[in-house]
Nucleic acid binder design. Structure first.
Lengths: 195, 195, 195, 195
DNA sequence: GGGTAACCGAGACGGTACGTCAGGTCTTGCG
DNA sequence: CGCAAGACCTGACGTACCGTCTCGGTTACCC
């Protein structure tokens, strides 16, 4: 299923990989996305530029991997109400978007992804996929509870949730209040509920 | 109120201004934001680079002025219902974000604004101000009609509307369906209405 | 007659030119031709790389100009005998090839010129032209004196003289003895003289 | 005399040696010396880079061995006159310097040898040694015939012969005429002969 | 109506980063 | 140990922009 590893020649040193990733995360958090250069990452990681280009095609892919390593092990929320579930989901999004590295990286990173046709598709498939999976299950439960209709468009709702948080936190730079996730969840839940 | 013009020496040629603005808009639409350079704009406009730097501090400010010239002459919607008013407002946002130049410019442009502390504030004051003004009046009427509470947070709702549209259209690259504005308006209106 | 200077835009700063030339000469003398890089010259001259590439197409042309500035103001020898004239000419060649910068530069420089078809022709026209001019006059006088035949091939003799000195001094690295020029001159003069 | 072979472990595969040598000769002839890289030779020979570095310290030594394999089996000329002998010797030099691989390799190769102190000595000992041996014998015979003096400096004459041919053919790129060797031989022989 | 000060085009300037390539060393698994 | 493969660090390559500067030359205002 997965591509067989060639296993020919010297294997790539996982310590280089690790050093590159953490140097990237540190530089992005310290200097911002635009001021982070491949050369700078290489110097900081004590690595040649080729070692980076061998693994990633460019800065966007590298930063994406370095900053969004959160393997999203968070459990799927199950509070018993749609509003409660959405609140938990949104709290996750707010935290993710507000972490130092992510906040520094996201605007430039998404801009680079959006600008490259071959990367644009990955916004949905890589950035949003984990959240979509969870939102799908939350919606299934809400449908069973009779809170929302069966055909509620997951992608559109997810774009709204993510867009709202990204715009509010990432672009406008608003510091997230503790109530933020709850407020947004309430509005959206009420908005899509039956009746 | 505005800075007094020096009025000493040769006045700036308004034809240069015009040529720069339209060259910028054309280049952004054709090549995208990242591939648009000041030098390229100057060459296309038949103008020296200094003539650009004399008027704008950098690419973000230039592109902002070139692409968002919509003097927002659109009348404030007054359909009689909050949902109707929001639909009209959102249609405006969708159109604005979907125009070729704006779609090509927005992700990179917002990223550059967000990355520069001195520009970050202008996202709210320049990008969103016209919409906020209209949304305020729409909300006032809705309060008078008893549809929403008096203290409904305008900024947060606006960030949600703008974020949803920007994310959906600008980043994910979804082609806007005719129903999009209405759907979003319905959800948000229902979500913030009393009861 | 000469190409008209464009005189459009900011003129090139002759101090940059000067700084680049002397940095190049110094680096070649200190480090050798191969270890002299455009980037190194730029750093040493306090100049951007573009400023170098704007004036010279590459390292060979730059080094050539930097090292062989000797405008060959040496007078044409006229000692009364072919042997004497050739001795003076050869002393000039020996000195030129033995100067620190030239000795360090010549093997690599000539190799780069010989490897590039568009530069190859310049070996004869740029490196050898001044010597050929002098040798021509020396030969004319020797013909008048009846020492050599009228059709003696200048280019071939010049290649022999230059090749002998270059090989002996530049490649094999022999330290030139005071008698070297005289010995070679005697051999060649005797070899081409009538009888 | 030679370094003792390790004779521990697997012996070196002579087919690799052969493949490397012929790949090197082919690449040098096709692409030139500068454009010939160790990596390219390895790929062409179907060999790992280490297998090359295990046998040769670097490109100069490798190319030298690949291009100058002519084990100089040519017999020592004995035509009865110094001019005749020198003509035969020079014909050999001209042919050697004019062969496709040698012509492509020589300028860069000699430059690399001259630039490295540890290789510089080998120009005389490796490049010129076979010719010197023959020239010595030619000179001995000429001394016996009374054509030249006993103390004629072999090295200097050899540098002159080699330098003239190398400069004329290798650097300036002159196509060798059939008379070239004879003409040079006549000049030099006349030049060094007694009287 | 003559200065003078700012504007204009062109393009040179010192920098920084790009993505590629070669050099020479090393580390795999397999003979 | 040899060997093919290929990862590794270093450092140079030539290009593209950045934002500033310096030319010659042109307006338009102010004295």
């Amino acid at each position: 299923m997965s591509s067989s590893p060639p296993s020919k020649g010297r294997p790539r040193d996982p310590r280089s990989h690790e050093a590159i990733i953490s140097a990237t995360a540190a530089l992005v958090a310290e200097m911002g996305y635009a001021a982070t250069s491949i050369g700078g990452v290489a110097a900081r990681a004590g690595v040649g530029k080729d070692t980076i280009y061998r693994r990633w095609p460019g800065k966007p892919e590298l930063v994406f991997e370095a900053v969004f390593t959160t393997t999203d092990q968070a459990p799927i929320p199950d509070t018993g109400t749609l509003t409660g579930d959405l609140t938990v989901l949104l709290q996750g999004l707010v935290e993710e978007f507000h972490s130092p590295a992510a906040a520094a990286a996201l605007p430039g990173l998404l801009a680079d992804f959006a600008a490259d046709p071959s990367l644009k598709a990955r916004i949905r498939s890589d950035f949003l996929a984990p959240s979509k999976e969870r939102l799908l299950i939350v919606f299934e439960r809400a449908v069973l509870r009779g809170e929302i209709a069966a055909g509620t468009p997951v992608d559109l709702v997810l774009d709204t949730l993510a867009g709202a948080v990204f715009f509010h936190i990432g672009l406008v730079g608003e510091h997230p209040t503790p109530q933020l996730a709850g407020r947004l969840a309430t509005v959206i839940a009420k908005g899509i509920e039956i009746r």
